[in-house]
Simulated scan of single mutants.
Amino acid sequence: MATENNKRDDSSKDSKSIIDGGNEKEEKKKQKQEDIDNELENSESTDDNRAKTHGEILKQQIIEGQETYDRSSSSILLSSLTAGLEIGFSYLMLCAVFYFFTDKVSEESVFKIIAFVYPIGFILVILGQSILFTEQTSLLSLPVLNKKRSLGSLLKLWGLVIIGNLIGGYLMSFLMVWIGPELEIFTLDSIEKIAVHVTRAESFVIFISAILAGWLMGLLSWLLTSSQDTMSRIIIIYIVTAVMAFTGLHHSIIGNVEVFAGLISSPNITLADYVSFESLALIGNAVGGAVFVALLKYRAFVYNINSVSS
């Protein structure tokens, strides 16, 4: 009987130690989160002429991300649809420049030249404060990493933004396919060649390319937060997106316009081509923005806080 009582006591002690251990871990997690929040709260400078610190940029990005979460679904959908429409002006210029230089220089050179007009739509979207999926990917991930929002709310928000961006792109595609030949600024052949060029790579290549593009767009968002004035923001947008275009990296939103326009105007672009491209580009862009920018930038800040605390 005494032996049984001793076993029960030992079992109770073990259970208690496990519970205490679990509570201790939870307390440590809470303490770490409080340290991170306190450090972010203190990351504020009154000197406008000084470059922003890592913590200041991160704090502002988390705040901006949370503000987007607080917007209504209809507001987010309308803003993202606007971004899908506005990015179409980049496509308008791509087609016009492509058609103008066709037969004047080699096709390979034309695809390099159009990189210089590629940033126009991005400048309109970002400075106009419309919600573009790739520019917002890392921004919207940070409140989740900071435990201010849930993963479910992030996926829901991403879904709304993607839907709005795609619908806006579809509308611009129909408009471009009609108005280009009518104004004689480009032809359906130009649309087809651009679409074929975008989709010609292997699926794995498109996916990795989209990750790099998402990475660049996430860095763009980070750099814009650190910039001080409109002119510097325009230069940053231009440089980053021109690099993306010149190297042929795949962007899911302007790529949506490029490939969908080809789908509705050319037999050489199939529905399977469009779905495959858009799926790979969206996932790749999300990985590039969320993992290589949001996660790494956030973890670098957290590791610095932990090292100081210890």
Rank of each mutant, 00 (worst) to 15 (best):
F277H: 08
I36G: 06
V302W: 01
G248H: 10
A2P: 03
S232P: 08
I63L: 11
L296G: 01
I254A: 09
T46E: 12
L160F: 13
I18T: 14
L145T: 10
K104N: 13
Y118T: 07
A213P: 01
H251L: 03
S130L: 00
I253M: 05
N256Y: 01
N6R: 15
A272R: 13
D229C: 12
S309D: 11
T68R: 10
N165P: 08
V275H: 08
I36M: 06
V117P: 02
V205N: 09
S153K: 09
G218C: 06
T270N: 07
L81T: 10
W222Q: 09
F260R: 01
I57Q: 00
I253P: 02
D14W: 06
V125T: 06
T137A: 12
F133L: 11
P267L: 09
S12Y: 14
S45C: 10
K13I: 15
N304S: 15
G218S: 07
I234E: 06
A115Y: 08
G214R: 07
S43L: 03
E39M: 03
L280P: 04
E184M: 08
D14M: 10
S43C: 06
S43Q: 06
L124A: 10
I206N: 01
F277E: 08
I269V: 15
K59V: 06
S190V: 07
V257S: 12
I191Q: 00
S150T: 15
D189G: 11
G22F: 13
G128P: 01
Q33A: 11
N49S: 15
L132Y: 01
D9Y: 11
Q136N: 15
S310P: 01
D70K: 13
I162K: 03
K297S: 07
Y238A: 10
S276V: 11
S138W: 02
R8C: 10
V259Y: 03
C95I: 05
E86C: 14
A201W: 12
V257L: 11
I167M: 00
I234S: 00
T82E: 09
F101R: 04
P181E: 08
L295C: 10
K59A: 14
I234A: 00
G121K: 00
V117N: 07
V302D: 08
I194N: 04
S203E: 13
D273L: 02
T53N: 12
I253C: 06
G218L: 02
E56P: 07
G289R: 00
L223R: 04
S307G: 07
G121L: 01
A294S: 15
L132V: 03
E202W: 03
Q228H: 13
S72L: 14
I114M: 15
E39V: 09
A245S: 09
I264M: 04
G22W: 12
T241G: 09
E44R: 05
T68A: 14
E192Q: 13
N304E: 15
H250L: 04
L216D: 02
S45Y: 06
S141H: 13
T199C: 07
